[in-house]
Nucleic acid binder design. Sequence first.
DNA 1: TTGTATGCGTTATCAT
DNA 2: ATGATAACGCATACAA
Lengths: 371, 371
Amino acid sequence: MSDRQRDKITIAEVAKRAGVSTATAGRVLGDYGYSRQEIKDKVRKAAEELGYRPNLLARSLITGKTKTIGVVAGDIQSPFYASVMRGVSDVTRAAGFGILLTNSDERLDRELEAVQLLREKQVDGLIIAPSDLTGSAHLHATVRDGCPVVLIDRLVRDLAVDGVCVDNHAASRDCIARLVAAGHRRIGLVAELEGWEGGDVEDFLRAVETGSLDSATLFPSWQRLYGYVEALKEARLPVDPALIGRVGTYSAEAAGKETRRLLHMADRPTALFPADGLMAAAAMEAITALHLQIPEDLSLICFDDLDWMSFIRPGIAAVVQPLTDMGEAAARLMLARIAGEDGPPQRLALKPKFAERGSIARPRAVEIPPS
Amino acid sequence: MSDRQRDKITIAEVAKRAGVSTATAGRVLGDYGYSRQEIKDKVRKAAEELGYRPNLLARSLITGKTKTIGVVAGDIQSPFYASVMRGVSDVTRAAGFGILLTNSDERLDRELEAVQLLREKQVDGLIIAPSDLTGSAHLHATVRDGCPVVLIDRLVRDLAVDGVCVDNHAASRDCIARLVAAGHRRIGLVAELEGWEGGDVEDFLRAVETGSLDSATLFPSWQRLYGYVEALKEARLPVDPALIGRVGTYSAEAAGKETRRLLHMADRPTALFPADGLMAAAAMEAITALHLQIPEDLSLICFDDLDWMSFIRPGIAAVVQPLTDMGEAAARLMLARIAGEDGPPQRLALKPKFAERGSIARPRAVEIPPS
DNA sequence: TTGTATGCGTTATCAT
DNA sequence: ATGATAACGCATACAA
């Protein structure tokens, strides 16, 4: 330990050297209040000579503001969060804010720890991709205590705060519609689909049937399934539960396994729709291993645009989420709240782009439905 | 503004409710000093009832420790830094530390701002991928002030601090040696190679000739060029400067352009070695656009293993950097320094793995050297 | 415009 | 083992 933080220069020492009071020195160094130019110069000169550096902890303790935003990401290593973070940090940096980063691994226990740490460190606000859309007492408490919260990627139903998402439902429906337009009737979906509060996939399908679902407060993968179902219904095509590849856990291995199951079916799908980047990579791996040609043997549209999709032959069509935009928007909402803006909660649903590439063709063997 | 941070509960209020002094309450809540179990229970109960949350700012102000580590990454959006950060945050989280993240975009001016902000926020240590290996007065100052610094990915020559890198030189030499062993004599390299203090590539080659270079304190791309040159010399093959694709700026577009230049040469290389992930993706795009078959028309080894390399046919051989390991190691070194360890600077050179895949074959047209 | 005095929420020092 | 009180470094009300 010895002498960590050697000979720290405080405002008091600068004041003494400049021959003024600490209050005056504080005013010029902290850039508040009034002082004569002459005094300013003297104080700044003294500060410069001593190598003064403000201690933002002390300032924050008194002002009650840290100019720091806490972020709870799922996994910073994933391209999704990495890009979102880029957007967040660009906007916050420009505003002179710092960001305290944590990973939840999409686990509620981790998230709880993270939120607690961030709040004890007195962040001015919390940007979070909530790992659980129901058990969010900690978020309610955060809001109640006056700490602004901005949700990202998914919304907590009864939490009245700002949020930035992508319109998963519409984008997914659009993808499936494209496949249908190309003549596909059996379209496989590969998605994580973990923990929907209402039960399993069959239950979900029934709930869609009754129209009792609020698409906006579902996890993205469920929203995408929703869009998938709706597109099929719109086209008056049957929804075959066997074509819904539920991976269950967010793992490439499991996704590959589920993809192989779909592709080995007797009546296998002529098109595949992996519902996010990880599913897409795993699906692609499986497709390659089976020596299936795209789009001759199988059409493919992916949710999330990974770099290889543009240069793998013949190019993989994909939904391009505006990830850095999401981060930027979230950060801007946050800064506005911190600045005191107090309108009703804003929910932004960003519209993804679509990258049209050569992975969609008419199915080779068009099945003749029994008339 | 109104009532940000509503009715904050402080130790004083807990103390009053528990019927003890603030000192005692502080001892049990802060978990230091001594107190009877009976008192502890009483205080904890009061804290619980009031919903007390410690204010870490106040604690840090007095202890001089924030349990926060500042990180200056180049670009959190890149898979490289995203993975490194994952490692850093895993280790720091387990130790109860937070991390303040900033991006430098590999620009010194951004880095200076970032370091200043982090230090003013009183971080306990700084993990940084320095954007400039010479102009590092700010890092020297940081060390001088007793704030531990750990370098990542590259070392600053005269800065005596811990650092974690990958042995780029050896890994690169190994790659080229593999290509040589497969019969290649004209091997193209695509690398960023920006700002070497000693001049341009020709100057660098001369410096390698004289053996006056310290490989460890070069930027990674230069280290990789170094390994490239050494491998060729070892095989008694000529180093053709025209085969060294210097991209100059870290951009995919420029990398693609340089790749195309190499592949359009009259005497074009039979093998390509993109020296990092961005170069690899750009090169792959160019190769695909030219309809070149791997490995029949061109052999390929890449530095950095991107996910598509494993499932694109026939698989792209690659150097696999232990990225999260790097982050973890850096974080561990940092925690040790913070804990007071004061041995000599540690420099870790992690050994990358090699992913052997089907992208290497004998060159189709083996040139007969003039006897 | 400047200086004095007090407070932010803790921990640390000393009595008791 | 506990309590009174002084720090920590800065901002701020108020007086001058």
